[in-house]
Amino acid sequence: MGAHDIIRVENLAVVYGEDHVLDKVNFTVNKGEIFIIVGGSGSGKSTLMRHMIGLEQPAGGKVFIGDTDIATSGEKAVSLALRRIGVLFQASALLGSMTVAENVALPITEFSGLPAEAVAAMVQIKLSLVSLECYGDHLPSEISGGMKKRAGLARAMALNPDILFLDEPSAGLDPVTAAEIDRLILHINQTLGTTIVIVTHDLDSIFAVGQRAIMLGRKTGNIIARGAPADLRDHDPDPEVRRFFTRRPPDA
């Protein structure tokens, strides 16, 4: 493990039946950067993320979070490694029976060892990080989609993770709200130094926040391009990659 990388994926292979969804995927994510995983629909980018956060076991290869290979290490080491990450799921995944504040309090109460009033103060701090300090007592069904994303982000940030995974953070949001989420991502990255991995195909957010990106090929199941998003758009030799980053269909 190098001095700068915090995640290392080595020869990751994912097979569903006969279908090689991912094959020989290799990359590293550096500490403190905003890293983007892009690819067309069905290219396996969400599958890649599910393997990086330990939800699924790969058919082959390794996924290191810090120094722990979460594909092969023991349960205890994996759960310690996974404590370093926070995840914002695509549909926010807030528990519908709990208020926003209770959702954020859930991991804090369970893992921090703080007494109740301190947890409440901590929840307030986390909610004000995402500008939801006045919505703590609302149920997830009573707030808008953008607010749900922000609440999900507050919950993902509850234990100050070293790495934050975001699955399509701007999907289903209007452009202004999506831009607000982008600004929040940059804010968290700059003030807290959190490493952020984003799975998305929203070009505006890729160029707004992304420092480095990899692109998964639709048929090949491996990485067809890597580099800074703007470089990929302007200088990548592969026309499929340039088309993706300029939003053009194949025959244009």
Partner: peptide, 20 residues
Amino acid sequence: EKTLALVDFGQPDCRIPSHK
């Protein structure tokens, strides 16, 4: 200082009434 900027040491100013 950056970290302290995240914390509001006053009371939050909530205009929306508590709906409950």
